Simulated assay, not measured.
Amino acid sequence: MRDELRAIRAVAFDLDGTLVDSAPDIQRALNSSLRREGRPRFDLDRVRGWIGDGPDALIARALEAQGCSGDDVALRARLRRWFDAATLAAPLAGGTVYPGIAELLEALSRRLPLVAVTNKPTPLARAVLDAAGLLPYLQAVHGADEPALRKPAPAMVLAACARLAVEPHELLMVGDAEPDMRSAHAAGCRAVLVGWGYGHATLPAWLDPLRITAPHELRAALCAAEPIPNA
């Protein structure tokens, strides 16, 4: 892996399922919003399977599971407002930073610029990262504030490249699920799939990223690899 990462000059991390096990907080925020509308709530395992595409998709999946067509735009908007408010009120009340992640970011941030690229809207993502103590290690947070930005679209990854003044092949995308790997592929970036999180088991065979089972593996590979100097 070290030789394959020699050209890397910056790293982008997914948030939910990659840096932080935020499923308990996402469940709490979703159930809080559903309760306000008098709707049934969902258990953690069900919600965990819906994570990865941002709160609007999460809410749509919850409504679909309740037999709602999703055509009620006003209802979806209210649920999203309640969801955001619940998240901002307690960004990391039940979730946890995955073991070894803080050490990984601390080590890499001394060597390479780091960013977050997440389907969470930017204000929510920054609140979670701040509560997790990880925000100081990141130079930027790219959140899906518009539907067109959402991974697997490459827009946020390419925006990170532009912000950091690196070429796509010099940026490494690290994530736990198919949208992360697809966005990296579409942008022309290298990708690492982590062996924890929520979606790593459902990756299609044609996507063949590098893989790690623990954060220290990426730390060792990137800290040992000598980056190619700027031309």
Rank of each mutant, 00 (worst) to 15 (best):
M1G: 09
R2A: 11
R2Y: 00
R2I: 14
V11S: 06
A12Y: 00
D14F: 06
D14C: 05
L15M: 14
D16K: 10
G17H: 06
A23E: 09
D25H: 10
A29T: 04
L30N: 02
L34N: 02
R35Q: 15
G38H: 06
G38V: 11
G38W: 03
D43H: 12
L44I: 15
R46W: 11
V47L: 11
R48C: 08
R48L: 03
D53T: 00
G54Q: 10
A57G: 00
A60R: 13
R61F: 08
L63A: 05
E64T: 12
A65S: 15
A65D: 12
A65K: 02
Q66D: 13
G67D: 09
S69Y: 01
G70A: 09
G70L: 04
A74S: 13
L75E: 11
L79V: 05
D84C: 11
A85Y: 00
A85H: 07
A85W: 00
T87C: 15
A89D: 13
L92K: 03
G95Q: 06
G95V: 12
Y98A: 03
G100M: 14
A102Y: 04
E103H: 03
E106R: 15
L108F: 02
L108S: 12
R111N: 06
P113D: 03
P113E: 08
L114W: 02
T118Q: 10
N119H: 08
N119R: 07
K120W: 13
T122V: 06
A125T: 06
R126F: 03
A131D: 08
A131M: 11
G133Y: 13
Y137I: 10
Q139T: 13
V141Y: 09
A144V: 10
A144M: 09
D145T: 10
P147K: 08
L149N: 04
K151E: 08
K151H: 13
P152C: 13
P152W: 14
P154I: 04
M156T: 07
L158P: 14
E167C: 10
V174T: 04
G175F: 09
D176P: 02
A177Y: 04
D180M: 07
A186N: 10
A187P: 00
A187W: 05
V192G: 04
V192Y: 00
W196Y: 14
H200D: 05
H200I: 02
P204H: 13
L207P: 01
D208L: 10
P209A: 12
L210C: 04
T213Y: 01
T213M: 06
P215Y: 12
A220I: 01
A221L: 02
E226L: 08
P227N: 11
I228Q: 09
P229E: 13
